[in-house]
């Protein structure tokens, strides 16, 4: 569509984006508010950040969350990429429908059901709940997202590149490592980022599958939030939002730079 947006479009976009961003913006503002009240501006202050870092429980939870996120995102990226390759590269194989069903279902499956079912699995297998079980659960949840991201890249990937590699003497395995993977790498990395943030974010599945000593940051935030608005939580949230924003901005600058170096001067 070439014509610019109409006034109606502009108004709806403005309202829509304000709706999306206003609450986040308010959180950030409140985190610097010296007053505990959200409607009163008690002056600029960073005291909530100070108390935050002395809150050992929150710090421990944050550390658990980061470890779970890093490991599960990496596992999910490997598994999800393999699943995407299997789904795009093999025509029909036995059990394909079940496989593709299971690959996409976690995207829409209510988290309560996934959490409950995974808990029952761990109980049945006799695995003690802890960091391991949360990691396994998050891997299962997030690999579906990696599959979708990588698969949409593979769908547009020119198959003849792999054939050319094989024609030039590369085994299928080498063709994958030397030609396919370098070309789908941005999608694989995007999948990892997505898996990592989803793991950082998850409350429900972590609640079901974690045990003592493996309380994650969202669980900690949740238990405090239920008691009402807390300036300390505002500060945590602001830090998280800041980290994600910086990450996403760096990522997009990186992609832009890649594009620019790839196109002729």
């Amino acid at each position: 569509m070439r014509r610019g947006p109409s006034p109606f479009n502009l108004v709806s976009m403005t309202v829509g984006f304000a709706f999306l961003y206003l609450p986040i913006l308010l959180l950030v503002i409140w985190s610097f508010n010296a007053s505990k009240l959200v409607t009163v501006w008690g002056g600029f202050s960073t005291k909530w950040y100070g108390t935050l870092f002395q809150n050992d429980q929150l710090m421990a939870a944050a550390w658990v969350t980061i470890r779970v996120g890093l490991i599960s995102a990496t596992l999910a990226t490997v598994l999800g990429t393999l699943a995407a390759v299997a789904l795009t590269r093999h025509g029909a194989f036995r059990g394909r429908t079940l496989f593709s069903g299971m690959s996409y279902a976690p995207l829409v499956m209510p988290e309560v059901i996934m959490g409950l079912s995974l808990l029952l699995l761990f109980v049945a297998l006799g695995i003690d709940r802890g960091i391991l079980t949360v990691t396994l659960a998050h891997t299962t949840l997030t690999m579906a997202y990696v599959t979708v991201v990588v698969q949409s890249r593979l769908a547009t990937f020119d198959r003849s590149l792999e054939e050319a590699a094989q024609d030039l003497g590369a085994t299928p395995t080498r063709a994958f490592w030397q030609v396919t993977l370098p070309n789908i790498l941005p999608a694989v990395l995007a999948g990892w980022m997505l898996a990592f943030t989803l793991s950082l974010d998850d409350l429900v599945i972590a609640s079901f599958t974690s045990g003592p000593g493996s309380t994650t940051l969202p669980m900690r935030i949740y238990s405090q939030v239920r008691l009402g608005v807390s300036p300390e939580i505002n500060a945590v949230c602001t830090l998280l939002i800041g980290a994600v924003t910086i990450g996403v901005i760096c990522w997009s600058i990186g992609m832009k730079w890649r594009e620019r170096t790839a196109t002729p001067a």
């Binding site: 950082l200 974010d201 998280l240």
Partner: peptide
Amino acid sequence: PFWTSFLI
């Protein structure tokens, strides 16, 4: 916003 915490 999708990248920032749902809970938050």
